[in-house]
């Protein structure tokens, strides 16, 4: 499988993280998204007319939507699947709010920044309420006691919220949820999401 990838993209990271947790190997084709805008080059548009990343290539299969790619990677891993559609829809909303706020703050995307952040805070509050209820039931993850596609879809843009000027300081349940994901065997980091250094220390 070849992933057309940009190192700072939250959506590309979703795919890299999902594959890493599943133990699947991806051949990364690095795209110069910034500053060269290679995702809009003729070659890339031939592959994906939308001109977006990520793009996953597996034989004849070409997937250009991160939700579709996550479904594809987990097609033989039912333990990661559940009622995924609402969570993938939420992940898309998070990308429009927190994700765009981040692109505004880092790369000067033309975004209504106040609206993007306010929408992000609303979604974070909903997620926090949900994860708080999950913890009352003894669950560490969005859909239960074990990690699922839903978690991986939502994790990147939530964790990277501070990049777009949205603080995560006052979301205790989300912080523990993010920590649970960062503790998973096979977890990989991206810039803005540090690894848990304490894990490498033998107690």
């Amino acid at each position: 499988m070849i992933l057309y990838d940009y190192v700072l993209s939250a959506s590309c990271y979703k795919v890299r993280l999902m594959a890493a947790l599943l133990g699947q190997s991806l051949t990364l084709h690095t795209v110069n998204f910034h500053p060269a805008r290679e995702h809009k080059s003729a070659d890339m548009l031939a592959l994906n007319p939308k001109g977006t990343l990520p793009v996953l290539l597996d034989g004849e299969t070409v997937l250009t939507d991160s939700a579709d790619i996550l479904r594809y990677l987990t097609r033989d891993a039912p333990e990661w699947r559940g009622d995924d559609d609402p969570w993938l829809a939420l992940a898309a909303d998070l990308n429009e709010s927190l994700g765009m706020a981040r692109l505004h703050d880092i790369l000067q995307y033309d975004v209504d920044i106040d609206a993007a952040r306010a929408a992000g805070v609303k979604q974070l509050r909903k997620l926090e309420a949900h994860m708080t209820a999950q913890r009352f039931d003894g669950h560490l993850f969005l859909t239960g006691a074990v990690p699922a596609l839903a978690d991986i879809a939502c994790f990147p843009n939530v964790s990277l919220a501070p990049d777009g000027g949205v603080s995560l300081d006052t979301y205790p349940s989300l912080r523990l949820w993010m920590r649970a994901i960062r503790s998973l065997p096979g977890f990989i980091e991206m810039p803005g999401i540090h690894r848990l250094h304490e894990l490498e220390f033998p107690e």
Partner: peptide, 12 residues
């Protein structure tokens, strides 16, 4: 990509 990775780790 390598240099953006490094610098974005510093940004946080």
């Amino acid at each position: 990509s390598f240099q953006q990775l490094i610098f974005m780790q510093d940004r946080s």
